[in-house]
Each structure stands twice: as structure tokens, then as C-alpha cells.
């Protein structure tokens, strides 16, 4: 056996999971080599110590204390309560954000309304108002009658009852 052969095998033996015995002819060859080669003997010593120490950290499988299950259950109950609470928290947050969005929308509409009122001449504004109030027939009359669209004229027209027919 050469040093290389020995080292190759050692890599296999290194794992504590592998069985501890080296059997038969291999054992004799290994013993012969080790007695003549201090370097390999030292390597095996290191490997042996590693195996012993790693194996020492093994803990036999056991049943946990019965109280563990009660402990886990209690923690899970707490978690369910917490997630229920956070559901309502989330619902509240959602409702609050909906309210904010609605308010922003209203503000935007109010802004548009103010803008329209500032930019559009009085006559057109009244025409739009009439339209908005669905007083279509009145609006139609105002447009087609060719009357002068003075503010008073429009206001009085709108104050009047909407006509029943064209």
C-alpha cells in the first residue's frame, strides 16, 4: 500500500458514520504501512480523534417532556390570537386609507369645479349648470333662442319651471 492509497481510504473512513473496523488483509497492509510511515500514522491519529469527538456529540433519540406539547399549543393559540388581531388592524388600516383616498378625490373634484368656474365665461357656466341639473330643455332654449346670454336672463330662465315639451 502506498501513502496515496492509504490517504484515499482515510477520506472514506473519516466520516464518523462509516463503520469503525478495517478488516482482513486491508488491516494487515495498513498496520504494516503505518509502522513504517510516521506521516500516515499521524494522519490516522488526527482522523481517529476527529471521529471520536464527532461521535461524542451524538445525543440518543428520546421522547420530549410531555409539557412540550402544551407549551407549543399555548404558543400557537397566542399566534392565532395575534393574527386575528392583526387582521382587524389591517382592516382598520385599509378603511383609513380608503377614507383618505375618497377625501383626496373629493378635493380633486372640488378643484376641477373651481377651475371650471374661473376659466369659463358666465354664459357658458350657466349653460353647463343647466346641463348638470338636467334642465336640458331650458338649456336648449337658451342656446337656440338666440337670446343674449346675460347672467340675469339665464338665472331667471333657470328659476322658471322646466318646460314640459319642446
Amino acid at each position: 500500500m502506498t501513502c496515496r492509497d492509504i490517504r484515499k481510504r482515510m477520506a472514506m473512513w473519516a466520516r464518523a458514520a462509516s463503520p469503525g473496523e478495517i478488516a482482513g488483509a486491508e488491516r494487515e497492509a495498513l498496520a504494516a504501512h503505518l509502522s513504517a510511515c510516521p506521516a500516515c500514522a499521524e494522519e490516522l491519529r488526527l482522523l481517529a480523534l476527529k471521529r471520536i469527538l464527532l461521535r461524542a456529540t451524538r445525543v440518543p433519540e428520546v421522547d420530549p417532556a410531555p409539557s412540550l406539547y402544551a407549551r407549543v399549543s399555548a404558543r400557537l393559540r397566542q399566534e392565532r390570537a395575534r393574527s386575528l388581531f392583526s387582521f382587524w388592524e389591517a382592516a382598520r388600516t385599509f378603511a383609513a386609507s380608503v377614507a383618505v383616498v375618497a377625501m383626496l378625490l373629493l378635493m380633486l373634484l372640488a378643484g376641477v369645479n373651481i377651475y371650471i368656474h374661473q376659466q369659463i365665461p358666465v354664459e357658458r357656466r350657466d349653460f353647463i349648470s343647466a346641463l348638470m341639473e338636467r334642465n336640458f330643455s331650458e338649456a336648449e332654449r337658451l342656446v337656440f333662442a338666440g337670446e343674449e346670454l346675460s347672467q340675469e336672463g339665464v338665472l331667471s330662465a333657470l328659476a322658471a319651471e322646466p318646460r314640459e315639451s319642446r
Binding site: W13, G20, E21, I22, L30, A31, L34, A41, E42, L44, R45, L47, A48, L49, R51, I52, L53, L54, R55, A56, T57
Partner: peptide
């Protein structure tokens, strides 16, 4: 080294050292 490799017995000291 050989003997050490095949050692099976466990020891509390080995556990603490590990």
C-alpha cells in the same frame, strides 16, 4: 493510531472537549 481509530467507548470528557 490504529487502536485510537477503532476505539468505541465514550467518555464525558470527550463530550465536553468536543
Amino acid at each position: 493510531a490504529f487502536e485510537l481509530f477503532e476505539q468505541q467507548q465514550q467518555s464525558e470528557n470527550a463530550v465536553a472537549l468536543a
